Amino acid sequence: MLKKIVLAGGTGFIGQYLERAYTNDGYIVHIISRQPGQVSWNDERAIVDALEGAEMLVNLAGKSVNCRYTEKNKREIYESRTRTTEALGTAILKCKTPPKLWINSSTATIYRHAEDRPMTESTGELGTGFSVDVGKAWEDVFFRFKLPKTRQAALRMAIVLGADGGVMEPYVNMVRFGLGGKQGEGKQMFSWVHIEDVCRIIEFLKQRKDLQGIFNVSAPNPVTNKELMAHMRQAMGRRAGLPAQKWMLELGAMVLGTETELILKSRWVLPERLEKEGFRFQFDHLDRALWQIVQELKQEQ
C-alpha cells in the first residue's frame, strides 16, 4: 500500500521543502491550496478523500506576516490560519480512517518580548498584541478538536532559515549593500531554526507515537541581533556593516510594505520538549547554518 501524507498550504517555502523530501522518500503527497491542479480549499469532499488513510497531515496555511498590518491584512492573517485549521479538523471528523498525526503550524511570536530569560513550553509567558492574539486563536481552534484516532502537535516555530526562502534574502541584501550592522539596539534575541531541522522534527514526531501537544521549534542556541549580523557578515566575507536605527527601520518598513516587529521583537525561545525527548539538531549553531545557506546560495547564482 502506498504511503500518503497531506500538506495543507504546501505551496510555500516550508511546504515545498517537505514535498520534495517526502516525495523522494516514496510518499504520495497531496497539497491543499488555492492553486489549480491541487486539492482545493473549497472542495470539502476532495479534502476528506485526500486525508483518508494518510499517515500525516501538516498544516502550514496562512497569509504571510511580511506585510503592513492594515485592518484588511490583519483580518486575512487571522482568518487564513483559523478558518483553514477549522476546515481541516471538520474534514478529519468525517474520515473513516483519519490521519494518524496532525501537525499544525503555530508561532514562537506567541511568547512575550523577552530580553531577560528564555521562553520554554513549561515556563514561557505569552505576550500581548496582534501577533500573539493570532497565535492564541490558531492554537485554540486546533486543540478544540478532540480526535481519538489522530495525535495533534502544534509547532511554535521560530524564524525558519534556508536558501530558498524564509527571511534570508533581506538580511543577505542588507549585508551585501553595506547595511549589515545591528538593527535597533541589537540586544533583541533572534531565535531561528534551519529548514532541514524543521523537516527532521516533523519526521521525529511522526515516528514518536507517544508525543503530542505543543513544541517549540527553535534551535537551542539563539543569538542577539548584533551577533546575528556579525555571523551574517562573516559568512558572506564582509568585514563591516552600517547599523540601522529604529527610525530608519520604521521608514524602510513603510517603503517595503512590512512591519518592524519582524526585526525588533526579542524572540528568545528554547526547544525544551524536543531536547528532553532526545531530538538532536543538525544545525544547532548559527554559524554552521549560515555557512551552509550561503554556500547553497552561491551554487544557485
Results as ranks from 00 to 15, higher is better:
1 M>T: 15
2 L>C: 13
3 K>C: 06
12 G>W: 01
12 G>I: 04
14 I>C: 01
15 G>P: 09
17 Y>C: 07
21 A>F: 08
22 Y>S: 00
24 N>T: 12
28 I>N: 13
30 H>E: 14
35 Q>A: 11
36 P>D: 07
37 G>H: 12
43 D>M: 06
49 D>A: 11
52 E>R: 02
52 E>H: 10
56 M>T: 01
58 V>I: 11
64 S>A: 09
66 N>Y: 13
67 C>G: 01
70 T>A: 14
75 R>I: 06
78 Y>G: 08
83 R>T: 12
83 R>D: 14
84 T>V: 14
85 T>Y: 08
86 E>I: 13
86 E>K: 10
87 A>E: 09
87 A>M: 12
92 I>T: 00
100 K>I: 03
103 I>R: 05
110 I>G: 00
111 Y>L: 01
115 E>P: 01
116 D>Y: 08
116 D>Q: 13
122 S>L: 13
123 T>W: 10
124 G>V: 06
127 G>P: 08
129 G>R: 03
144 R>K: 14
147 L>K: 03
147 L>G: 02
151 R>V: 13
160 V>I: 15
162 G>N: 03
164 D>W: 07
165 G>P: 05
166 G>K: 03
167 V>P: 04
170 P>C: 05
171 Y>L: 15
172 V>N: 07
176 R>Y: 08
177 F>P: 09
183 Q>Y: 03
184 G>V: 01
185 E>Q: 13
188 Q>L: 08
189 M>F: 11
195 I>Y: 01
195 I>K: 04
201 I>F: 02
203 E>V: 02
203 E>F: 08
203 E>D: 09
205 L>E: 03
207 Q>I: 06
207 Q>R: 13
208 R>D: 03
210 D>I: 05
213 G>A: 12
214 I>K: 10
216 N>A: 13
217 V>W: 04
218 S>E: 07
221 N>E: 15
226 K>D: 15
227 E>Y: 10
230 A>H: 12
231 H>P: 07
232 M>A: 14
232 M>I: 10
233 R>Q: 08
234 Q>I: 11
238 R>Y: 05
245 Q>W: 12
249 L>K: 02
255 V>P: 13
257 G>E: 13
261 E>W: 08
262 L>H: 07
265 K>P: 01
267 R>W: 04
268 W>N: 04
270 L>W: 00
271 P>C: 11
274 L>C: 02
279 F>H: 03
283 F>L: 09
287 D>T: 12
287 D>G: 04
288 R>K: 15
289 A>F: 02
290 L>M: 08
299 Q>I: 13
301 Q>R: 15
